[in-house]
Design a protein around this nucleic acid. Structure first.
Lengths: 193, 193
DNA sequence: TGCTGAAGTGAGCAATTGCTCACAATTGTG
DNA sequence: CACAATTGTGAGCAATTGCTCACTTCAGCA
């Protein structure tokens, strides 16, 4: 059997190739959006042939799914790490900083991936991520406010996401100012009966 | 010149055809998502031939743009209408109800259109709508709180949108409960120094 | 009733795109 | 070095899709 896709790379250069393909997809999304996202284009940008691309991914969607999962893991880990912060106020501040940093590190990519997600029908995984984020957020919020409910934590995440997305779409770049407004909104929501 | 697209329909049945094409695109988005959104499919679902479709729209994207603009007008008009409400508290409540009603009237469509929007590069129009909504929201908010700034109104819209989108994605259906949480979040944000 | 132009039709073309496979190059090992 | 396994190549196939155009049908009017 010559062609067995989704080969597990055993040599180091194979892993490099695999990573290059995923990163090429990310770069194309940032520069051209979903329109230029063809397999031939991805392979070209990654500096490999299409044949190589199909040795590591069974189809185009698998590349995008890998990219989405890569980005998700980064955010989920960063947020999860905040739980170890003992000081309640600092933990809360770090939570917001982490979310901001993730969105503004590669703003166009973050926005594009959200749209790709639904095109692939990965909404279930998106909900799963939201649950993880909510759980971590709940733990952090309860350090300051023990009676916080899961629903409130979920809303806090939604408020945060809404404000950051709108700011990014409007072209705002003053991350500090945005952070203060997010802080104010989440606190305002929680402190209200 | 036989083929001149974007013909202005002069007869009543032509307007019906045009509207049917746009509505067919909406129905396909709701049932199949972006994947089934081909011109042949749209024409079939609308009950017209592809040739007729291309008499009223120069290309596929024009159909989607027309759909997006149609939905936007509905929301913008509804929100604008709230300004005539004299009672400040009722105006504020109606604002939230309007936003909720728009999202939950056709939830899948509203979500899909947001993604289509970026694929078409219509972000500029999205920002323009956000500005209109913010302006109307600002006017309504100032009835209760005269010192409200444009930035705060923009944030209020973003918070509202974030909460509603998250609730819709999570499959929530208790519109009344969501409305209360939106109310709480926006008020919490505004009442905070 | 016959005519004119608007409205509607659908087979099929041109271009794109996802993907295959026969082959070449490179790497590790006895 | 030999040779086997892994990795990399790219021309081109099959299928899809946006769109055209020569043609038919229908509505309104003199």
């Amino acid at each position: 059997m010559v062609h067995s896709p989704r080969k597990q790379p055993s040599q180091a250069r194979a892993q490099v190739t695999q990573a290059a393909i995923v990163e090429a997809a990310a770069r194309i999304l940032e520069s051209d959006g979903q329109s230029g996202l063809t397999t031939n284009h991805i392979a070209q940008r990654a500096g490999v042939s299409i044949g190589s691309l199909y040795q590591y991914f069974p189809n185009r969607d698998a590349i995008l799914a890998a990219l989405i999962r890569r980005e998700r893991e980064v955010l989920a880990h960063a947020v999860s790490a905040v739980r170890s912060e003992a000081d309640p106020d600092r933990a809360f501040a770090r939570l917001i900083d982490t979310a901001l940093a993730h969105q503004f590190a590669r703003p166009r990519l973050a926005l594009a991936l959200e749209h790709v997600e639904q095109a692939l029908g990965l909404e279930a995984e998106a909900v799963a991520l939201a649950d993880r984020l909510s759980a971590d957020t709940l733990a952090v919020l309860r350090k300051r406010r023990p009676q916080t409910t899961p629903c409130e934590a979920q809303d806090a995440v939604a408020i945060c996401k809404g404000l950051i997305n709108a700011a990014a779409l409007a072209g705002e770049t003053d991350v500090e100012d945005i952070g203060e407004r997010v802080f104010r909104a989440v606190n305002g929501y929680l402190d209200r009966p």
